[in-house]
Write a protein that binds this DNA or RNA. Sequence first.
DNA 1: TCGAAACAGTACCATTTTGGTCCTGTATCC
DNA 2: GGATACAGGACCAAAATGGTACTGTTTCGA
Lengths: 150, 150
Amino acid sequence: MLRVSRLTDYATVVMTCIAAHPAEVLSTAQIADEAKLELPTVSKLLKMLGHAGLVESFRGVNGGYRLARPAEAISLADIVEAMEGPIGLTECSLAQGQCERLSACGVSGSWRTVSGAIDGVLRAMTLAQMLAGRPMAPVRSATDTAQATA
Amino acid sequence: MLRVSRLTDYATVVMTCIAAHPAEVLSTAQIADEAKLELPTVSKLLKMLGHAGLVESFRGVNGGYRLARPAEAISLADIVEAMEGPIGLTECSLAQGQCERLSACGVSGSWRTVSGAIDGVLRAMTLAQMLAGRPMAPVRSATDTAQATA
DNA sequence: TCGAAACAGTACCATTTTGGTCCTGTATCC
DNA sequence: GGATACAGGACCAAAATGGTACTGTTTCGA
């Protein structure tokens, strides 16, 4: 179905919740409550998002999480990559050369092109836009990408 | 990693092989040999592609498969959909309304927008282009999509 | 008319990935 | 020094995936 994992989906919800309170440090419990997700799950998500440098963590009493940079500077691609690793539709989109079928198939180039285009789409959607809930206010020229079918 | 299943990847290879012989009816064995894939796997792929109406099948001796329509009229989106069902990045991109968290999250709209854009990218890549192995010769205006990151 | 070739359909199994939970450690604040 | 809250693992159950096998059914050709 060409979909992202459920955790990635959850991660966007969690990031949106955090972005909605730019000034505060929110505890995992608060975020879980607001996002209507299980606490251990949210904890796991936040750890991964922290490793990717998208959120800052504070330990101890009154600790919690906060966006590491403004919502305008975080893209959907950042979140997807944090959760699923580098974006590439096929195995050989990333590590080319180690597919013994390469000579026979010849489709790897096309897949790489498509992967690049999709990366562009994901990169054009910012967390700020997702927070606003608006479809996709043009931010970069690359955004007119959407028309094709949408 | 946001990738398509391996079978989908294989399907593109198989389709490319068939497209390379537009006039002939190729047996599963021939295709498997040319694509360097296992025969039962190719058989499974072809059945799915047949159900989706992308290839025509002929039974009996000298039977086999052939493209159901010209390579220019088959897009990567067609192949992906044949293998993985409707394109949508998240569960609620397709069936909205049945997510009890919808009120809380508010990101579904953004995901739907992005899914649409990706669908456009996939639809802009035709089998003919994949066969040619060229990155993405402009065919429709929507094609300049690729730049963003590629 | 019969047998071989080749697709159709289905069922099955092993492996991997995914999603989710729990436990222990460590830092911070009061 | 104790309570709060994140860090970092390990761990497990369930589902999806990929691959295989078996049994029809159709068609051609001798």
